[in-house]
Amino acid sequence: MKSQEKLVEGVLLLLALSAIASLALITIFIFLEGFPLILHTGLQKFILSSHWAPTRGHFGILAMIISSILVTLGAMVLGVPFGLACAIILAEFSPPRLTRILKPTLELLAGIPSVVYGFLGVIWLVPLIRTYLGGPGLSLLTGAIILGIMVLPTVISISIDALTAVPDMYRQGSIALGATHWQTVQRVVLPAARSGIITAIILGMGRAIGETMAVIMVAGNALQIPRSLLDPVRTLTSNIALELGYAAGRHREALFATGIVLFVMIMILNLTATFLARRR
């Protein structure tokens, strides 16, 4: 009996460790592959130049960094107000039974493959933008809209959790002072849930900045610093996916180095989210 217990414990520990080990290996591998190029080109030149011509030895990813940031910010500008409004309605105003059905349904949206979002974008959104706003239709704006929709499940679900975690005694105290339901939400519940809501937004940002397939399909992938919302852009993730197939040598290293930059950006976002969630 005792030895069996030990055996199960040992097997579980082994599985847990191997999962962590594979993550660690991936990280080490990315850094080993990408770091030599950063040393070779120089960090400054790598992230502050926008001259990307890998066949001629120019590896500057500034345009892609800017594009990634702009697409992500655009997604947040569109996704956060909708997501937050939706979370407030579902957590505070809709009948609990409806929330119990709608919340898992919304979370299912996160499970739809991103290629499907991209496909919808191409056949529906791109022509719309081309016709009514001009430009090629494949653009920064299109990418931001699609990503804005894709971050909704994350933003809504975590915001709902943050709002429902606010103790009821705050709501009762506010209502007993003569506040209406909306005044209570606005003046007590939202401030009390603030750190959780910021966490939701940051995790949504992490999802947006890391998204690849849908962005490749709708953002146009032109290597340039965009001058308007209707310009096509290529993000960091798009660039890796588009070029990895034929890259070799320094070029391949440069793509891994791009991966390091993404890794660091997402790491910073996640650490901020963890920090804020803990501060509650």
Partner: peptide, 19 residues
């Protein structure tokens, strides 16, 4: 709103707002 302004309530557990 007017009623609760006239009739205030103190709860079992102190419930100041996190403000």
């Amino acid at each position: 709103t007017q009623l609760r302004k006239r009739v205030g309530m103190v709860f079992q557990r102190p419930n100041p707002f996190p403000l």
